[in-house]
Simulated scan of single mutants.
Amino acid sequence: MNTKNAIIANAIKAIDNESNAIKNLASFIDDEFAAAVSFIYKSKGRVIVTGVGKSAIIANKIVATLNSTGTPAVFMHAADAIHGDLGTILKDDVVICISKSGNTAEIKVLVPFIKEGPNKLIAITANKNSFLAQQSDFVINAHVEKEACPHNLAPTTSTTAQLVMGDALAICLLELRGFSSQDFAKYHPGGALGKKLYLRVKDIAMVNLKPQVSVDTDVRDVIVEISEKLMGVTAVVENEKIIGIVTDGDIRRMLSKYDNIGKLTAQDIMSENPKTVGCDVLAVDALDIMEKYGISQLLVEKENKYFGVIHLHDLIKEGII
């Protein structure tokens, strides 16, 4: 077998191993899993997630997922916990401890200290007979038959299983809390996903230049206005209301149609009834309008008065596209 084929075969084998293990996890979702989720949901404190080695990395990711979906969570490294970080745990917190074997030295030292307090302990482990499982109030089974590692040593499939169980737990809590897309936007204001849920047309238009001319504006001044305001268009406005639009395309068509443009005004070359959008419309919905009509700009109105312009490039820059 040549090198390329060997690489492909090994990659497929690893993926098959992990995907089969993930499918098997569904059989471990039981009454105890449901009880653990319910206890977290009803608790007044945070979720403290701990582990060591690769499990600590998974714990960090689970914490991030919980925090972003409405369940306050904090990561505590199992090794650091017994050197001062036990103070992270408050009386109303729930502790999740992640360990494949459930019998590592750090876990055996840490668990008794957790059990001395009032906090409930949830285990995510592949070994239901382990020290961790026996000491925990709830056990989430993340058992796997073997690692993707050909030597069955490097944590691969087992950490994937831990991650999936953590995701399942987070999603169940999200559903219980009725966590909505609007809530998601509050927790992700800086990301592209969040922007699709909260960024409005006015947020973009208000920082753009605002090109506008009147119906009797000389066509040369119309060209200057389009060029200086850098939006590729200008609104034609009368008494603060939009009555037309002049685009770069209108200018090109004018030049091909007229030999003498000296006496032309905005009214002679504008397009009437341009596509507009309200300033409170979501930017992602404005994108839908642009795509529907095959246009790159939209004139923006506020209370039926001209407010500004948004361009397709604005939506690209904001990560909406």
Rank of each mutant, 00 (worst) to 15 (best):
V233T: 04
I223T: 05
M254G: 09
V207I: 15
D280F: 11
D285R: 15
V236H: 01
L209Y: 09
Q267P: 01
G249Y: 11
I251M: 06
A235M: 05
V281C: 13
N273A: 07
A283Q: 05
A283E: 05
V246H: 10
V246M: 10
A205V: 00
T217W: 03
D250Q: 04
I245Q: 06
R253L: 13
T265N: 15
M270G: 02
D259P: 05
K241F: 09
E272R: 15
I245A: 06
K275E: 07
E225I: 04
L264Y: 05
I243D: 06
I261R: 08
I223H: 00
N273S: 11
T265V: 14
G232T: 03
K263H: 12
A283W: 05
D268F: 02
V213N: 05
V233Q: 02
T247V: 00
G249K: 13
S271N: 15
D218W: 08
V233S: 00
L282K: 14
R252D: 06
V281T: 15
D280S: 11
V215Q: 10
K275R: 06
I245W: 04
R252C: 08
N239P: 09
K229C: 14
L282D: 10
V233R: 02
T265R: 14
N208E: 07
L209K: 15
I242Y: 04
V222I: 03
V215P: 03
V215D: 04
T247F: 01
G278C: 13
G244C: 06
I261N: 11
V281P: 06
G278K: 11
R220I: 14
K210C: 13
V281E: 14
T265Y: 12
L209Q: 12
S214R: 02
D203K: 05
L287E: 10
E272H: 14
L255T: 07
K229M: 14
D285I: 10
D285T: 10
V237L: 12
G244Q: 01
V224E: 08
V246C: 10
N239C: 10
V236R: 00
L230H: 15
T276N: 02
R253C: 13
T247N: 02
G244E: 03
D221H: 08
D285G: 04
V222R: 00
K263D: 12
G249R: 14
P211Y: 04
T217P: 04
L287W: 07
D250R: 00
A266C: 05
N239A: 15
S214W: 01
N260Q: 09
I243E: 07
K275D: 03
S227Q: 12
I204V: 10
P274I: 07
G244H: 01
G262R: 09
V246D: 03
M231C: 15
I242A: 05
D268W: 02
D216R: 11
I204P: 00
